[in-house]
Design a protein around this nucleic acid. Structure first.
Length: 570
RNA sequence: CUCCCGGUAGCUCAGCUGGAUAGAGCAUCUGCCUUCUAAGCAGAGGGUCGCAGGUUCGAAUCCUGCCCGGGAGGCCA
């Protein structure tokens, strides 16, 4: 529709020899904020006026002279400083509603190029359960994936697992110390160790499975710091590595379970360790050799450095440490190379905003390897803070007091958690009010939206009980009798669903969809209260039922993108 | 010190590729259930869009400076 208006305007602009526009798509046509200004509006006359010294309203008059002949346009108004307001015929207005009524499949976003898209998200370290910060990423990543596939794109959802290096040793040691403590040894965990209670549970599991396999004679004087513990443990236990693996497997299992419960479904878990397979011939080593051959890396102070400064980073970065261990950055560089080699049209990373300083070096590494870093889009996710009524709930990962996603879901439910995570722009900090999320009334937007759907379900039941028949054919026929302000408002809100999805798609964001659904629900509730829907008059009844069903189709469709349920009864 | 994000109603936030009177929810106040779910609706009050300049027909939106809040600047991940 928008495109049709752009095309018409463009024709007229060319015919009148006006300068300033070379393509139809440059002409701004948008939905005005109130219905007073028509169904569509354009500011093009003001833009043209700026380049031609002519008065915008005069230009407007010249332009619309021929346009009114179009039969799908009922009226064009010149308003304000020179806006063109278009009013459409009712057939045009009900097009989308009829489509909603017949739709069985999810609605598709039209006019977008099909792409292969990789989206990597959550990717939390497998050293502990997912906490609410990761949950926000999970909600956004999964919803975004749903949205992107609506445009026909093939979306691959990936979780990158850092299953290597010091943190896994740390995990193993943390587990072991908890395990040894089970027999009454009083061991104080060094501060570098993971402190959460989940390790106590894991330690008991380990004990059950393996009995005393990992017990050994402790020296009289226990080590006091992390490094000494590690040295001791490695000396005493030949299979110390198994402990890290055990913990990692168990924890990752838990993460997967939590994610599934949270309606988040990754296609693939990509293990960092896979980059190191085949030792010297691994993807990791090949890539590092390549960098070295190309002169992109160099030795200094016993370490190997990447020349990221050459590609816009502030300073060069270490790839291989003095102790020969690769840095996190080195692995990540190879991982991103791997992503590019898989030939996606677009790659999206969802990162915690505390990683924003990390982006320049990843971009630098990709440029160095000769990849188009434009294909990589990084979306940053700000922190979540929890409040309960007016009190802040304290959260700190280090001390193990973090609030796990699972706990939050158990308390307020998946739907509410997802909604609250998605309703805010991802790059803004989020204040999550637990009490509000638990409410089951209109204060809580997720219930408010779901309630609109439940109401419509209940309407349909009531319709049957009163012995009325309804068919889409009759409903569609009756639509043109809709004329009240509330009805028009609802029609117009339903119609802007497509545009809402397109905008979300283009901007790779979700929160506008939440706001849209909330508005739609509000307009529906208002409509419901001002008109009898199951009316005695066949025409009004059929039309209003059709309108309600179209509303329902959109609500269900929108909620399914958000990964939120639509209960029929509440 | 440098960089990033933010500052919009009492609170939580939309709007930011410049456009018509700056929006929503909560909170406050006032109404509405013999009628399809009151788990709802209708209405009212509430604003120097952080401050100061600039750009232009037009600025919450773009530019510059400043103030305030948060984050980032590892051979951590």
């Amino acid at each position: 529709m928008k495109e049709d208006i752009q095309k018409l305007l463009f024709q007229e602009i060319k015919a009148s020899n006006l300068k300033g526009v070379t393509r139809a798509s440059q002409i701004e046509v948008f939905e005005p904020k109130t219905l007073e200004f028509g169904d569509w509006t354009s500011n093009i006359c003001m833009k043209l006026a700026a380049k031609s010294d002519d008065n915008p309203r005069e230009i407007a008059e010249r332009l619309i002279e021929n346009l009114t002949k179009e039969d799908w346009i009922t009226k064009i108004e010149i308003a304000g400083a020179g806006f063109l307001n278009f009013y459409l015929s009712s057939e045009q207005k009900f097009n989308f509603i009829e489509q909603c009524l017949e739709q069985k499949e999810p609605l598709l976003i039209q006019g977008k190029v099909k792409q292969r898209i990789l989206i990597e998200y959550v990717s939390s370290n497998p050293t502990g359960p997912i906490h609410i910060g990761h949950g926000r990423g999970a909600a956004l990543g999964s919803a975004l994936s749903n949205l992107l596939s609506r445009a026909g794109s093939e979306v691959k959802q990936e979780y990158y697992v850092n299953d290597q290096g010091l943190q896994i040793e740390t995990l193993g040691l943390s587990l072991l110390l908890n395990y040894l403590s089970l027999d009454g040894e009083r061991i104080k965990l060094p501060k570098e160790c993971y402190q959460g209670d989940y390790l106590k549970t894991l330690a008991s599991d380990l004990k059950k499975n393996e009995k005393n396999k990992y017990k050994f004679a402790l020296p009289e004087k226990l080590p006091t710091n992390f490094d000494d513990w590690l040295v001791l443990v490695k000396k005493e236990l030949s299979d110390f590595k198994e402990l890290g693996k055990f913990a990692l497997t168990k924890i990752l299992d838990g993460i997967m379970t939590d994610l599934k419960e949270f309606n988040t479904f990754h296609d693939d878990f990509f293990f960092e360790s896979s980059l190191f397979k085949d030792s010297k011939k691994s993807e990791f080593h090949k890539t590092l050799d390549y960098l070295s051959k190309k002169g992109l890396s160099y030795d200094k102070d016993g370490a190997i450095w990447y020349r990221s400064t050459d590609f816009g980073d502030e300073k060069d970065r270490v790839l291989i440490r003095e102790n020969e261990a690769p840095t996190y950055f080195a692995s990540d560089l190879v991982y991103h190379k791997n992503k590019f080699d898989r030939k996606f049209d677009e790659m999206i990373n969802l990162w915690g905003s505390d990683h924003h300083g990390y982006l320049p070096r990843i971009n630098a590494s990709l440029k160095g390897l000769g990849y188009e870093s434009k294909k990589l889009k990084t979306i940053f996710i700000q922190f979540v803070s929890l409040i309960r009524g007016k009190n802040k709930v304290s959260m700190s990962t280090r001390s193990g007091e973090f609030v796990s996603l699972k706990k939050l879901i158990d308390e307020v439910g998946v739907d509410a958690v997802r909604y609250f995570f998605l309703e805010r722009r991802s790059d803004q900090t989020l204040e999550f009010d637990i009490e509000l999320a638990k409410k089951k009334n209109k204060d809580n937007p997720v219930y408010y939206i779901q309630y609109a759907n439940a109401r419509i379900c209940s309407l349909m039941k009531e319709l049957q009980e009163r012995g009325f028949n309804y068919s889409h054919k009759e409903g569609s026929k009756a639509l043109s009798s809709l004329s009240s302000a509330k009805e028009n408002e609802l029609v117009s809100q339903i119609n802007s669903y497509q545009l809402t999805l397109e905008r979300c798609f283009d901007k790779r964001e979700i929160h506008s969809l939440c706001f849209y659904l909330r508005d739609l629900a509000a307009i529906f509730h208002s409509f419901y209260n001002s008109h009898p829907i199951i009316d005695k008059d066949d025409g009004s009844r059929n039309a209003r039922i059709a309108l309600s069903l179209a509303t329902q189709a959109v609500i269900k469709d929108g909620l399914s993108i958000l990964g939120i349920g639509a209960p029929e009864k509440m």
